[in-house]
């Protein structure tokens, strides 16, 4: 069984974001980047399958900022091979549509049984990557997945629904899976192991063509949430604040009496 895990770097959300001069993207110059947390879950799920079945796990990423760190960390955790697809990232943000096209282009020439990726990312909150990839590769896809048990030619997949209900699905392989959560907390990679992987430097760089497909969408304007003045800050003594809250609740008919 061969598993590919698609990894993506996203901006660290603890940083302060600013909009660039064009007003259509965040200013990426001073940001730091981290592995998308859901991709980390996908990697863990793949490694759990490897632990259980002896599958090989390859991690695949585009040439995102600071992506080497994520690839070496994956190797330190037990990934067998790391592949970096270069030449696809332009100057700015690569839309999920374009990203899916690049991955699909490369995956077509490979023979993976399972392609795992995070169900969503900070810049892909609508979780498009897995379904698009499934469509482009013409294989089944399941998203919001919380468990994968893989066997020959098929996988039993647990998918989460609102309210915590879980459905168990059988899917024929190859397939693309968007992972919500792995069966265990993502494992820790000791820094010494990551540094060792770094020194060995076993990241395969594969040049790919820039994505041709356009999403048909253009970002017209990007902006931070506009402040509304509907919020009222209550101040004063605890008793005053409590009185005001009670008055407000009554005013709006939220409590009776």
């Amino acid at each position: 069984m061969r598993i590919a895990v698609l990894l993506k770097q996203v901006p660290d959300l603890v940083e302060e974001f600013e909009i660039d001069d064009a007003g259509t993207d965040i200013d990426r110059e001073f940001l730091t980047f981290l592995l998308n947390e859901f991709d980390n879950q996908a990697l863990e799920e793949a490694l759990l399958i490897k632990d259980a079945t002896g599958a090989t796990v390859d991690v695949v990423a585009l040439d995102d900022p600071e992506v080497d760190q994520a690839l070496y960390t994956a190797i330190a955790k037990g990934a067998d091979r790391a592949i970096k697809l270069t030449g696809a990232n332009g100057d700015g943000w690569l839309s999920t549509h374009a990203r899916a096209a690049v991955y699909a282009g490369w995956l077509t020439g490979e023979s993976y049984d399972l392609v795992l990726t995070g169900v969503q990312a900070a810049d892909d909150l609508d979780g498009q990557l897995a379904p698009m990839l499934g469509a482009l590769l013409d294989v089944p896809h399941v998203s919001v997945v919380v468990g994968v048990e893989a066997a020959d030619g098929t996988a039993r997949i647990r998918q989460e629904f609102a309210g915590g209900a879980i459905s168990e699905l059988d899917v024929s392989l190859p397939a693309v899976v968007g992972v919500q959560a792995a069966g265990a907390e993502p494992r820790y990679a000791a820094i010494a192991k990551i540094r060792q992987a770094q020194q060995e430097g076993n990241v395969d760089e594969v040049a790919v063509d820039p994505p041709a497909a356009a999403s048909g969408l253009t970002i017209r304007r990007m902006y931070p949430p506009e402040k509304s003045d509907r919020a009222e800050m209550l101040s004063g003594s605890e008793a005053d604040v409590a009185d005001r809250i009670i008055a407000l609740l009554r005013e709006r008919g939220l409590v009776q009496g």
């Binding site: 660290d12 603890v14 940083e15 001073f30 730091t32 981290l34």
Partner: peptide
Amino acid sequence: AQKGNSFGKSARQ
């Protein structure tokens, strides 16, 4: 490892 502090705050802060 990522930010140089255990609080998870931005290194710049």
